[in-house]
């Protein structure tokens, strides 16, 4: 089974990387009001069904893949 995890900086957490990219986009002539940078983690795992896989990946997020103090996460099971 395949899963995709999206990890994002939580609202209110200063993201200087996002700010730098946002301002570079501005220099290129794009009108960008805000840019925030997160991560994508693609996983392949063994699981009986989608619900079990989702629960397991959420555990991975809680324990390692995201730091709950600064990051939120979303888990998508892609079958």
């Amino acid at each position: 089974m395949k899963a995709t995890v999206l990890v994002r900086p939580k609202p209110g957490i200063l993201d200087p990387q996002g700010e730098a990219v946002g301002s570079a986009l501005g220099h290129l002539g794009f009108e960008v009001h805000d840019a925030r940078i997160g991560k994508v983690i693609d996983l392949e795992l063994e699981a009986a069904d989608e619900a079990t896989a989702k629960a397991e990946v959420e555990q991975m997020c809680e324990r390692l893949l995201a730091n709950p103090l600064i990051e939120s996460y979303e888990v998508e099971i892609v079958g």
Binding site: I13, L14, Q17, A20, N67, I70
Partner: peptide
């Protein structure tokens, strides 16, 4: 900080 023995977290320097 990551193991939870100390509070908080260390992030990328504001200046990058």
């Amino acid at each position: 900080c990551e193991t939870g023995l100390l509070p908080g977290v260390l992030l990328r320097n504001e200046s990058l």
